[in-house]
Design a protein around this nucleic acid. Structure first.
Lengths: 178, 178
DNA sequence: ATTAGCATGTAAACAGTTACATGATTGA
DNA sequence: TCAATCATGTAACTGTTTACATGCTAAT
């Protein structure tokens, strides 16, 4: 149920096509949501059928037409109603931690390599969130003011990745000592 | 695909029934995996059909029979093979952060209440993980030694919840200043 | 020539949630 | 008597991933 509101939220900030949306998910909300382009298109069709989105086709030279979606009155009302509802914290599902939990099947060398891989992935995420943060801090102060709560989500993403990185580094040092 | 290996991992440590398993998920791996009892039973049937699990029925007085599952040779081999494979980091999906991202639809008072609710949930999680940790630290040192990597996952859970709590508290102070 | 990016979609498989169903025991 | 715990299951639905499909442009 949350994907639809993630879609409505981004289109509320700025209208766009399914393709646009996919990229904006990757660039601006990947620290708390992700979705494939198939999910986008399906959700956009559904929301359009339900009258929460308007759609205007925009012809382009040498490229397929773009279908630009934007919120209708009802769409904005639906988003506003949902935003005010309590939401339970998401359950975590982290396959890598299952592997560590079954870690007595690993040699120290294998464990080291696995942790090292995760460390690199999380360092890369941290790096990209920090870059995003720099971009936000250099943007129009009036926009920053308007979306300051949205910005807090990025700060949480940064803190979460720092936590992962620190944990993985500590674990690697331990594995090295053995 | 990961649920099956989570199930195999727990049954590898100690055989048990679907019901047992459900409780053990809640008590010992809830910081990185969760599943409903329906998922357990379905997965157990599948794994049994595929020959990765043995099943022996254990009659009980005044209670329904228990079906005790344990790993077969092939089950152990399948787990060991999977544990050694690289796994990509899980994508995050946190509905509450969508709500904050659309936070310009909230009054300060509504935002405060929402953050407060999350803070309480994460404090409760932190508390329960710390309790789990105490139990681990008071258990048999030989067992602690054997499962020290598994224990690392709990330490990450604790750090992650501390990060959430600290973030939410900072955000609340900010909202109060407004 | 090949790869990457733009742009949209269908179909099938897999995973997860919610609701319903049964039936016994134990404790408040 | 009512709720909780033990113990297992079916059915329907919703959500997510993976594979396949088309076709154009721009850069290497």
């Amino acid at each position: 149920m949350s994907l639809r509101y993630a879609v409505l939220t981004l289109l509320d900030i700025e209208p766009g096509s399914g393709y646009d949306l996919k990229r904006r998910f990757e660039r601006s909300v990947s620290h708390f949501w992700s979705a494939s382009h198939q999910q986008m298109y399906r959700e956009l069709h559904k929301l359009h059928d339900e009258g929460l989105l308007d759609c205007t086709e925009q012809p382009q030279e040498g490229k397929p037409d773009k279908k630009i979606y934007s919120l209708t009155e009802r769409g904005r009302a639906a988003l506003q109603a949902w935003v005010q509802q309590p939401t339970p914290a998401q359950k975590i599902r982290e396959p890598f931690l299952i592997q560590l939990f079954a870690g007595h099947h690993l040699t120290d060398e294998q464990a080291r390599a696995a942790v090292q891989r995760q460390l690199e992935e999380h360092r890369a995420l941290l790096h990209s969130y920090l870059e995003q943060n720099e971009r936000v801090l250099q943007s129009d102060p009036a926009v920053q003011e308007r979306y300051w709560l949205a910005h807090q989500t990025l700060l949480l993403g940064i803190e979460a990745e720092k936590t992962w990185v620190a944990w993985a580094e500590r674990l690697l040092r331990r594995l090295d000592q053995q």
